[in-house]
């Protein structure tokens, strides 16, 4: 398997570390426990297109987001992770 690092180009699998689902959003610090449990433990785990975190550990050390099909391993995109962050609110929006 070869992964496209946005900085270094196509590189071998064994240069990378895996970080799992990249669509998760770290909850607000005071978010309800259920949100935190979901974030830490529960996953969509799709068979098909999957956006996931990888780190180019043996290369530029950047965390990246790769879009990869988990059934065929076909890769359809990659981005620097810090451009793909869905910013979490500093505090959860508590409705009164």
């Amino acid at each position: 398997m070869r992964l496209p690092c946005p900085w270094c180009g196509d590189r071998d699998l064994n240069e990378f570390g895996y970080g799992g689902d990249a669509t998760l959003q770290r909850p607000a610090d005071d978010a309800p426990m259920k949100e935190w449990v979901d974030y830490v433990f529960f996953r969509d785990n799709p068979r098909g297109s999957h956006r996931e975190h990888w780190q180019h550990i043996q290369g530029c050390r950047a965390w990246i987001v790769v879009e990869r099909d988990t059934l065929t391993h076909e890769i359809t995109g990659s981005w620097p992770a810090n451009e793909m962050v869905v910013a979490a609110p500093a505090k959860s929006e508590v409705t009164p």
Binding site: Y18, D21, N45, R47, H50, E52, R68, T70, L71, H73
Partner: peptide, 13 residues
């Protein structure tokens, strides 16, 4: 292999 997969076929490393 170390990544999410349903492929039933792995890689060389």
């Amino acid at each position: 292999d170390g990544y999410n997969s349903y492929a039933q076929r792995g890689n060389l490393p």
